[in-house]
Design a protein around this nucleic acid. Sequence first.
DNA 1: CACCAGGTAGGAT
DNA 2: ATCCTACATGGT
Length: 268
Amino acid sequence: MIKVIKSDDFDLHQIAQSGQCFRLTEEQGRKIFVAVTQNHFVTISLRDNVYEFDCSKNDFQNIWTPYFDLNTNYKILQQHMVSDVFLKAAIEYGGGIRILKQDLWEMIVSFIISQRNNIPRIRNSVETLSEFYGNYLGTCYGRDVYSFPTLDQLKGRDLSVAHLGYREKYIQCLCETMDESLLLQLPLQSTEDAKKILLQFKGVGEKVANCILLFGLHRMDAYPVDVWIQRLIDEVYHGDFNPETYLGYAGYVQQLQFYYYRNHAGLS
DNA sequence: CACCAGGTAGGAT
DNA sequence: ATCCTACATGGT
Protein backbone atom coordinates (compact mmCIF):
# COMPACT_ATOMS: atom_id res chain seq x y z
CA MET A 1 0.00 0.00 0.00
CA ILE A 2 1.16 3.49 -0.74
CA LYS A 3 0.85 6.54 1.44
CA VAL A 4 1.42 10.10 0.37
CA ILE A 5 2.79 13.19 2.01
CA LYS A 6 3.34 16.67 0.70
CA SER A 7 6.93 17.86 0.58
CA ASP A 8 6.79 21.27 2.12
CA ASP A 9 8.43 21.42 5.54
CA PHE A 10 9.55 17.87 4.83
CA ASP A 11 12.40 17.45 2.33
CA LEU A 12 14.12 14.09 2.22
CA HIS A 13 17.06 15.35 0.22
CA GLN A 14 17.79 17.96 2.85
CA ILE A 15 17.33 15.46 5.67
CA ALA A 16 19.61 12.94 3.94
CA GLN A 17 22.30 15.60 3.55
CA SER A 18 21.85 17.15 6.97
CA GLY A 19 24.39 14.93 8.72
CA GLN A 20 22.01 13.67 11.42
CA CYS A 21 21.48 10.27 9.79
CA PHE A 22 23.92 8.07 7.92
CA ARG A 23 21.67 5.40 6.44
CA LEU A 24 19.07 7.41 4.51
CA THR A 25 20.11 6.96 0.88
CA GLU A 26 19.12 8.69 -2.33
CA GLU A 27 18.80 7.03 -5.72
CA GLN A 28 18.15 8.42 -9.19
CA GLY A 29 18.80 12.04 -8.36
CA ARG A 30 16.39 13.14 -5.69
CA LYS A 31 13.50 10.93 -6.70
CA ILE A 32 13.96 7.72 -4.74
CA PHE A 33 14.96 7.30 -1.11
CA VAL A 34 15.51 4.30 1.11
CA ALA A 35 15.18 4.70 4.87
CA VAL A 36 16.18 2.09 7.44
CA THR A 37 15.51 1.95 11.15
CA GLN A 38 15.80 -1.07 13.44
CA ASN A 39 14.40 -4.02 11.47
CA HIS A 40 12.39 -1.95 9.01
CA PHE A 41 13.10 -0.28 5.71
CA VAL A 42 10.96 1.63 3.25
CA THR A 43 11.28 2.98 -0.26
CA ILE A 44 9.99 6.51 -0.74
CA SER A 45 9.57 8.03 -4.19
CA LEU A 46 8.98 11.67 -5.06
CA ARG A 47 6.37 12.37 -7.74
CA ASP A 48 4.82 15.77 -8.42
CA ASN A 49 6.06 17.21 -5.16
CA VAL A 50 4.52 14.33 -3.20
CA TYR A 51 6.36 11.59 -1.33
CA GLU A 52 4.93 8.11 -1.74
CA PHE A 53 5.82 5.59 0.95
CA ASP A 54 5.91 2.00 -0.23
CA CYS A 55 4.64 0.43 2.98
CA SER A 56 1.50 -0.66 4.79
CA LYS A 57 -0.74 1.79 6.58
CA ASN A 58 0.28 0.18 9.86
CA ASP A 59 3.99 0.62 9.22
CA PHE A 60 3.45 4.18 8.08
CA GLN A 61 1.65 5.05 11.30
CA ASN A 62 3.69 2.99 13.75
CA ILE A 63 7.18 3.31 12.30
CA TRP A 64 7.66 6.05 9.73
CA THR A 65 5.42 8.73 11.20
CA PRO A 66 7.38 8.77 14.47
CA TYR A 67 10.72 8.22 12.70
CA PHE A 68 10.26 11.32 10.54
CA ASP A 69 8.46 13.14 13.38
CA LEU A 70 5.57 13.82 11.02
CA ASN A 71 3.13 14.82 13.73
CA THR A 72 5.23 17.81 14.73
CA ASN A 73 4.63 21.10 12.95
CA TYR A 74 8.08 22.50 12.27
CA LYS A 75 6.68 25.58 10.57
CA ILE A 76 5.48 26.86 13.93
CA LEU A 77 9.01 26.54 15.29
CA GLN A 78 10.36 28.36 12.25
CA GLN A 79 8.10 31.31 12.94
CA HIS A 80 10.01 31.96 16.17
CA MET A 81 13.31 32.23 14.28
CA VAL A 82 12.69 34.65 11.45
CA SER A 83 13.74 37.74 13.42
CA ASP A 84 17.26 36.34 13.17
CA VAL A 85 18.55 37.20 9.69
CA PHE A 86 20.86 34.21 9.45
CA LEU A 87 18.18 31.78 10.60
CA LYS A 88 15.70 33.25 8.17
CA ALA A 89 18.08 32.48 5.33
CA ALA A 90 18.80 29.04 6.81
CA ILE A 91 15.07 28.27 6.79
CA GLU A 92 14.74 29.33 3.17
CA TYR A 93 17.62 27.03 2.31
CA GLY A 94 16.92 24.01 4.52
CA GLY A 95 13.42 24.43 5.93
CA GLY A 96 12.59 20.85 4.96
CA ILE A 97 14.83 19.44 7.66
CA ARG A 98 13.28 17.60 10.60
CA ILE A 99 14.84 16.01 13.66
CA LEU A 100 14.49 12.27 13.12
CA LYS A 101 13.75 9.83 15.93
CA GLN A 102 16.51 7.36 15.36
CA ASP A 103 17.60 4.25 17.23
CA LEU A 104 19.53 5.12 20.39
CA TRP A 105 22.17 2.38 20.15
CA GLU A 106 22.81 3.17 16.48
CA MET A 107 23.26 6.84 17.33
CA ILE A 108 25.73 6.11 20.13
CA VAL A 109 27.90 4.01 17.82
CA SER A 110 27.50 6.28 14.80
CA PHE A 111 28.44 9.49 16.59
CA ILE A 112 31.44 7.95 18.31
CA ILE A 113 32.55 7.02 14.79
CA SER A 114 31.79 10.56 13.61
CA GLN A 115 34.48 12.25 15.67
CA ARG A 116 37.31 13.78 13.65
CA ASN A 117 35.84 12.07 10.60
CA ASN A 118 34.00 13.08 7.44
CA ILE A 119 30.44 12.24 6.55
CA PRO A 120 31.06 9.93 3.56
CA ARG A 121 33.46 7.84 5.65
CA ILE A 122 31.02 7.70 8.55
CA ARG A 123 28.36 6.43 6.16
CA ASN A 124 30.73 3.77 4.82
CA SER A 125 31.68 2.54 8.27
CA VAL A 126 28.08 2.37 9.48
CA GLU A 127 26.99 0.62 6.31
CA THR A 128 29.82 -1.91 6.55
CA LEU A 129 28.95 -2.77 10.15
CA SER A 130 25.35 -3.30 9.04
CA GLU A 131 26.29 -5.51 6.08
CA PHE A 132 28.59 -7.66 8.16
CA TYR A 133 26.72 -7.98 11.44
CA GLY A 134 23.14 -6.74 10.96
CA ASN A 135 20.08 -8.67 9.76
CA TYR A 136 19.31 -8.99 6.07
CA LEU A 137 16.04 -7.14 5.58
CA GLY A 138 15.48 -7.34 1.83
CA THR A 139 16.59 -5.96 -1.50
CA CYS A 140 15.52 -2.85 -3.33
CA TYR A 141 16.94 -1.14 -6.41
CA GLY A 142 19.56 -3.84 -6.69
CA ARG A 143 20.95 -3.26 -3.25
CA ASP A 144 20.70 -5.43 -0.19
CA VAL A 145 19.40 -3.69 2.90
CA TYR A 146 20.60 -4.64 6.39
CA SER A 147 19.63 -3.49 9.85
CA PHE A 148 22.20 -1.82 12.03
CA PRO A 149 23.65 -4.48 14.34
CA THR A 150 22.35 -4.64 17.89
CA LEU A 151 24.66 -4.56 20.89
CA ASP A 152 24.69 -8.37 20.99
CA GLN A 153 25.36 -8.60 17.27
CA LEU A 154 28.32 -6.23 17.50
CA LYS A 155 29.87 -7.45 20.72
CA GLY A 156 33.07 -9.44 20.26
CA ARG A 157 33.03 -9.10 16.47
CA ASP A 158 35.95 -8.10 14.28
CA LEU A 159 35.44 -4.38 13.79
CA SER A 160 38.46 -3.87 11.56
CA VAL A 161 36.27 -4.45 8.49
CA ALA A 162 34.76 -0.99 9.08
CA HIS A 163 38.10 0.89 9.04
CA LEU A 164 37.28 2.83 12.18
CA GLY A 165 40.88 3.75 12.91
CA TYR A 166 41.53 4.76 16.49
CA ARG A 167 37.78 4.80 17.14
CA GLU A 168 37.67 1.01 16.93
CA LYS A 169 38.80 0.60 20.52
CA TYR A 170 36.07 3.03 21.64
CA ILE A 171 33.38 0.90 20.01
CA GLN A 172 34.96 -2.26 21.38
CA CYS A 173 34.98 -0.79 24.88
CA LEU A 174 31.43 0.49 24.40
CA CYS A 175 30.21 -3.02 23.57
CA GLU A 176 31.85 -4.36 26.71
CA THR A 177 30.54 -1.70 29.06
CA MET A 178 27.03 -1.14 27.65
CA ASP A 179 24.09 -3.40 28.36
CA GLU A 180 20.57 -3.66 27.03
CA SER A 181 18.92 -2.64 30.28
CA LEU A 182 20.78 0.67 30.26
CA LEU A 183 19.64 1.29 26.70
CA LEU A 184 16.09 0.84 27.94
CA GLN A 185 16.67 3.07 30.98
CA LEU A 186 18.25 6.02 29.18
CA PRO A 187 15.05 7.25 27.51
CA LEU A 188 13.44 7.45 30.96
CA GLN A 189 16.15 9.70 32.39
CA SER A 190 16.16 13.47 32.45
CA THR A 191 18.30 15.06 29.77
CA GLU A 192 20.93 16.03 32.35
CA ASP A 193 21.12 12.54 33.84
CA ALA A 194 21.17 10.85 30.44
CA LYS A 195 24.03 13.12 29.42
CA LYS A 196 26.05 12.27 32.53
CA ILE A 197 25.64 8.58 31.81
CA LEU A 198 26.61 8.95 28.15
CA LEU A 199 29.73 10.98 29.01
CA GLN A 200 31.08 8.04 31.01
CA PHE A 201 31.68 5.99 27.88
CA LYS A 202 35.09 6.30 26.25
CA GLY A 203 34.84 8.23 23.01
CA VAL A 204 31.77 10.17 24.12
CA GLY A 205 32.51 13.81 24.90
CA GLU A 206 30.39 16.94 25.04
CA LYS A 207 29.62 17.15 21.33
CA VAL A 208 28.92 13.46 20.73
CA ALA A 209 26.75 13.28 23.86
CA ASN A 210 24.65 16.15 22.56
CA CYS A 211 24.25 14.45 19.17
CA ILE A 212 23.08 11.29 20.90
CA LEU A 213 20.65 13.26 23.06
CA LEU A 214 19.26 15.08 20.03
CA PHE A 215 19.12 12.34 17.41
CA GLY A 216 18.83 9.22 19.59
CA LEU A 217 16.68 10.50 22.44
CA HIS A 218 14.96 13.39 20.64
CA ARG A 219 15.94 15.90 23.31
CA MET A 220 15.30 19.01 21.27
CA ASP A 221 17.16 21.21 23.75
CA ALA A 222 20.48 19.54 23.01
CA TYR A 223 22.71 21.83 20.94
CA PRO A 224 25.81 20.04 19.61
CA VAL A 225 28.73 22.39 18.95
CA ASP A 226 31.12 21.02 16.36
CA VAL A 227 33.79 22.86 14.32
CA TRP A 228 31.16 24.25 11.92
CA ILE A 229 28.84 25.56 14.61
CA GLN A 230 31.78 27.03 16.51
CA ARG A 231 32.97 28.77 13.36
CA LEU A 232 29.46 30.05 12.74
CA ILE A 233 29.12 31.42 16.26
CA ASP A 234 32.52 33.10 16.00
CA GLU A 235 32.20 34.57 12.52
CA VAL A 236 28.49 35.30 12.13
CA TYR A 237 27.42 35.96 15.72
CA HIS A 238 30.82 37.26 16.90
CA GLY A 239 30.71 34.87 19.83
CA ASP A 240 27.30 36.08 20.93
CA PHE A 241 24.83 33.25 20.42
CA ASN A 242 22.88 31.59 23.20
CA PRO A 243 21.00 28.36 22.36
CA GLU A 244 18.69 29.00 25.32
CA THR A 245 17.13 31.74 23.24
CA TYR A 246 15.37 28.87 21.50
CA LEU A 247 14.26 26.89 24.51
CA GLY A 248 12.68 23.60 23.55
CA TYR A 249 13.97 23.47 19.97
CA ALA A 250 17.61 24.60 20.05
CA GLY A 251 18.60 21.32 18.42
CA TYR A 252 16.42 22.08 15.43
CA VAL A 253 18.01 25.54 15.21
CA GLN A 254 21.40 23.85 15.26
CA GLN A 255 20.49 21.58 12.35
CA LEU A 256 19.29 24.53 10.27
CA GLN A 257 22.48 26.42 11.06
CA PHE A 258 24.72 23.46 10.37
CA TYR A 259 23.13 22.56 7.04
CA TYR A 260 23.09 26.11 5.72
CA TYR A 261 26.50 27.21 6.97
CA ARG A 262 28.30 24.05 5.94
CA ASN A 263 26.87 24.23 2.41
CA HIS A 264 27.25 27.95 1.61
CA ALA A 265 28.23 30.41 4.23
CA GLY A 266 31.29 28.53 5.33
CA LEU A 267 32.98 28.95 1.99
CA SER A 268 34.75 32.19 2.86
C1' DC B 1 53.58 15.82 1.11
C1' DA B 2 50.96 18.68 4.11
C1' DC B 3 46.27 19.35 5.71
C1' DC B 4 41.56 18.16 6.87
C1' DA B 5 37.27 15.56 8.42
C1' DG B 6 30.16 16.72 12.87
C1' DG B 7 36.35 15.45 18.88
C1' DT B 8 38.13 13.16 22.84
C1' DA B 9 41.32 11.15 26.36
C1' DG B 10 45.06 11.71 29.08
C1' DG B 11 48.54 14.39 30.73
C1' DA B 12 50.71 18.90 31.87
C1' DT B 13 50.12 23.54 33.45
C1' DA C 1 39.50 24.20 35.77
C1' DT C 2 41.80 25.14 31.35
C1' DC C 3 45.20 24.25 27.67
C1' DC C 4 47.90 20.84 24.70
C1' DT C 5 48.54 17.02 21.69
C1' DA C 6 48.26 12.30 19.75
C1' DC C 7 45.14 9.82 17.38
C1' DA C 8 43.78 5.95 12.32
C1' DT C 9 42.21 6.40 7.88
C1' DG C 10 41.38 8.12 3.29
C1' DG C 11 40.68 12.06 0.34
C1' DT C 12 42.48 16.56 -1.88
